[in-house]
């Protein structure tokens, strides 16, 4: 007997995808609209892309966001991997429950609290030790690393739990030191998790408005901060053009990732 294919479930599935994609398609369509108004279709035009290219405020903010996201993703992967490894492989150690709590908490913490908490810390630290002097890219990056390393740690943890420990044990039995075992055996095995964690940390940072708004200072406006202030003033086709560029980039990235994953899966099957 095969599983029945209820048409109800499939029509609901189609409805779900329509719900997910209608807004995105409307953004893309109206980014090519000649008119500034969303109401009227005044003909095809790419002028909003041209004006996007000349919008120095947006481009500058994008550059700042990109630098923060790169730095954040790299630091978050290093710290998150250390935390995940410690939690899965070290058994009981002093500080384990504190570490587990501080890895779990950022995942359920509202952004506004994380942002406010980080800002208050930076203000208090500046008063006490004079660092960080003022707020800007450094403070945003620190706040981002703090919450995105938790996501990396969770991904690394779930990968490590499923990893067969006998490979590592064999290496240790053959006399490899723990550091060598980690770099030669464990790291290559968990590399996909590290890549996924890096990408997630990168996106979380690039996407964050609330925490960046709290921890930023003059002269360090990230892309979401600039988009937010322009969106508050109303609909702007330049933002539509920006959205289309972002969607295109993400789609290309996901298609490449999916394609290489499938190729790899096929290779291992053969």
């Amino acid at each position: 007997m095969t599983v029945r294919r209820p048409t109800l479930v499939f029509s609901l599935l189609a409805f779900g995808y329509a719900f997910l994609y209608t807004p995105i398609f409307s953004l893309i369509v109206y980014s090519f609209n000649e008119s500034r108004l969303v109401t009227v279709w005044a003909g095809f035009s790419t002028k909003w892309y041209v004006s996007l290219l000349h919008n120095e405020q947006l481009l500058g903010a994008a550059w700042i966001s990109l630098r923060i996201a790169l730095m954040n993703a790299t630091l978050a992967v290093v710290l998150g991997t250390l935390a995940g490894t410690a939690l899965v492989r070290f058994g009981r150690f002093r500080g384990r429950s504190a570490l587990a709590l501080m890895i779990g908490a950022p995942l359920v913490m509202p952004d506004v609290i994380l942002g406010l908490a980080s800002l208050l810390l930076f203000v208090a630290m500046e008063q006490l030790i004079g660092w960080p002097a003022g707020r800007g890219m450094t403070t945003i990056t620190i706040a981002h690393v703090t919450f995105s390393m938790a996501y990396v740690a969770v991904i690394v943890q779930s990968r490590l739990v499923r990893l067969d420990p006998s490979l590592e044990e064999a290496a240790m039995d053959l006399g490899a030191r723990p550091w060598k075992v980690f770099f030669v055996i464990t790291l290559p095995l968990i590399a996909p998790a590290l890549a996924a964690g890096w990408l997630l940390a990168f996106t979380l940072s690039l996407d964050d408005l609330v925490i960046a708004s709290f921890t930023s200072g003059p002269g360090a406006s990230t892309l979401p901060m600039v988009v937010y202030s322009s969106v508050r003033l109303g609909v702007s086709p330049e933002i539509n053009a920006l959205a289309t560029v972002l969607v295109a980039l993400v789609t290309i990235g996901i298609v490449i990732a999916g394609w290489s994953m499938q190729r790899k899966a096929r290779q291992t099957q053969v």
Binding site: S26, L27, V38, L206, V227, A243, L246, I254
Partner: peptide, 24 residues
């Protein structure tokens, strides 16, 4: 396809609804 919207900007996905819902 479920994950793809998540990777695009959260702010921009919220913004998309402004253009859909507003008076005109």
């Amino acid at each position: 396809l479920v994950i793809l919207p998540f990777w695009t900007s959260f702010l921009i996905r919220v913004y998309a609804w402004i253009g859909i819902l507003k008076g005109n």
